[in-house]
């Protein structure tokens, strides 16, 4: 394996495009090094990008924040302004792994690794976050939801990689929340998860709702029907019940060592309900 620290994003893209063997990008390393240890992959080329400009920075931009692809969970969690604006996104990122893993794991890595159970992804989806992608032919912006395409797969082309993720400005009276279910209290992969982002009007009526669920389908899923079920009212029992039905209908999980189809489906609904009520409170709503 060759280990390379390219001098620029462009050089990195070219290097990755021209590599004939297996290449991996090293951000936090919390997935790729595990794969190396398990002999699941033996890359010929490991490209470390953490030193490149902006990769470890969080900068305010157009009312939102641009978060470098190598910003760790711990670093993000220490940023009060991002946390205040998108608490659900930050709590999702902060749930990845242990304190040790938090020092390294990144939201971009969590996205690119393509796990349907990635804790950072659902709330990024409901926040309508956008990934900035560098490729051999230049830069493009891609909505986060379009990056993962299936377990372990993403839509990036050869030579492409994420340099930052943009969290847009949040309207007034808005709030988000991410919850996951794990068997223990820490150190597990999500068995099911849900993120909810709500915008309210002055009276507390929901005007916009986005709900995403994780670990219940090949990719994180944005459930439009579930969001629609909350719009136009306060999240009372009837609205919540309709939303939960929509969430459950959108689940197409598998039974495996971590959970059953029934369990994943049921808990995804429960988590969406609980996350919606928390997000509603964060948005200033009162039931």
């Amino acid at each position: 394996m060759r280990y390379v620290k390219p001098e620029s994003f462009e050089a990195a893209a070219t290097l990755l495009r021209d590599e004939t063997g297996i290449s991996r990008i090293l951000a936090g390393g919390t997935d790729v090094l595990v794969q190396l240890k398990a002999e699941m992959v033996e890359p010929d080329l490991m490209v470390d990008l953490k030193h490149l400009p902006g990769m470890r920075e969080i900068v305010a931009e157009d009312g939102g924040f641009r978060i470098g692809a190598a910003v760790s969970g711990a670093q993000l969690g220490e940023h009060d302004a991002v946390k205040a604006m998108w608490p659900g996104v930050v709590e999702g990122v902060e749930l990845i792994g242990s304190s040790q893993v938090q020092s390294r794991a990144t939201m971009a890595g969590n996205l690119c690794t393509g796990s349907p159970a990635g804790d950072a992804v659902p709330a990024m989806v409901t926040a309508e976050a956008v990934a900035r992608v560098q490729g051999p032919d230049g830069v493009r912006d891609v909505p986060v939801i379009d990056i993962p395409t299936g377990p372990g797969k993403n839509s990036l082309n050869k030579g492409e990689f994420i340099t930052s993720i943009y969290l847009p400005a949040r309207p007034a009276h808005a709030g988000d929340c991410y919850l996951r279910f794990i068997p223990r209290t820490e150190m597990d992969i999500a068995v099911s998860s849900a993120a909810v982002s709500l915008t309210l009007d002055e009276e507390g009526t929901v005007t916009d709702a986005r709900i995403a669920i994780g670990a219940v389908a090949p990719t994180v899923r944005l459930v439009k029907d579930a969001g629609a079920a909350l719009v136009g009212a306060k999240p009372d029992d009837a609205a919540i019940a309709a939303m939960v039905r929509a969430v459950e209908a959108a689940c197409s999980p598998i039974t495996d060592k971590r959970g059953t189809i029934e369990f994943r489906t049921k808990t995804a609904g429960v988590l969406a309900k609980r996350a919606a009520l928390i997000a509603y409170g964060r948005a200033g709503g009162q039931l």
């Binding site: 280990y3 090293l26 936090g28 390393g29 919390t30 090094l33 595990v34 240890k37 398990a38 490991m46 760790s72 711990a74 792994g97 242990s98 304190s99 040790q100 893993v101 020092s103 390294r104 150190m187």
Partner: peptide, 23 residues
């Protein structure tokens, strides 16, 4: 060797890491 147990914890640039998950 996979970041699940913490027995290899060290500090790197002021942050706690699993040294098995750092090259």
């Amino acid at each position: 060797g996979t970041g699940d147990c913490g027995a290899c914890s060290v500090m790197m640039n002021g942050r706690l890491v699993c040294s098995c998950l750092v090259l």
